[in-house]
């Protein structure tokens, strides 16, 4: 109980963490200055990896888009963990669930649009074909 009494007033609520709250200072790797430095370093590495993957011929050409998407998602994860301090702890359940719903809608909108429009283009093909014949 003693460590609860010494917290600043915005930490007084133990059941819920505010999104981005600097709560995990003491024991966790993702907290405090070390957490920000680690996150910064990882983000720089992932950014460099994206630029290298896109520009050099290291990666098989048709696979570049997959590599870039994976690297981008990884870097977003680094930001969420080290900068926004999202954890899987019970005090973060509300934040994670809201994020999960947001990600769900984003995936529906983006992948759904791309999927439908690609099929639409595909079904339009016979028109060009008739003209060419």
């Amino acid at each position: 109980m003693s460590d609860r009494d010494h917290r600043p007033e915005e930490f007084s609520d133990l059941d819920d963490s505010a999104p981005g709250e600097e709560r995990i200072n003491e024991q966790e790797l993702a907290g405090g200055l070390l957490g920000y430095a680690l996150g910064f370093g990882l983000a720089i590495l992932l950014t460099l990896a994206s630029f290298v993957a896109a520009q050099s011929g290291v990666i098989y050409q048709p696979a570049i888009i997959s590599a870039l998407v994976v690297l981008a998602i990884a870097q977003m994860g680094v930001h969420l963990v080290f900068f926004i301090h999202l954890t899987t702890g019970p005090d973060n359940t509300n934040n994670v669930l809201a994020l999960a719903f947001g990600v769900f809608i984003v995936v529906l909108v983006v992948l759904g649009s791309v999927w439908i429009m690609t099929h639409l283009n595909h079904n339009m093909m016979p028109m060009n074909g008739i003209q060419m014949q």
Binding site: E10, S12, D13, D15, D16, S17, A18, P19, G20, E21, N94, N95, A98, L99
Partner: peptide, 12 residues
């Protein structure tokens, strides 16, 4: 929850 938490959650 405390106001700090509800305000930040709303902004989230």
């Amino acid at each position: 929850a405390s106001k700090f938490v509800t305000v930040a959650y709303g902004f989230w």
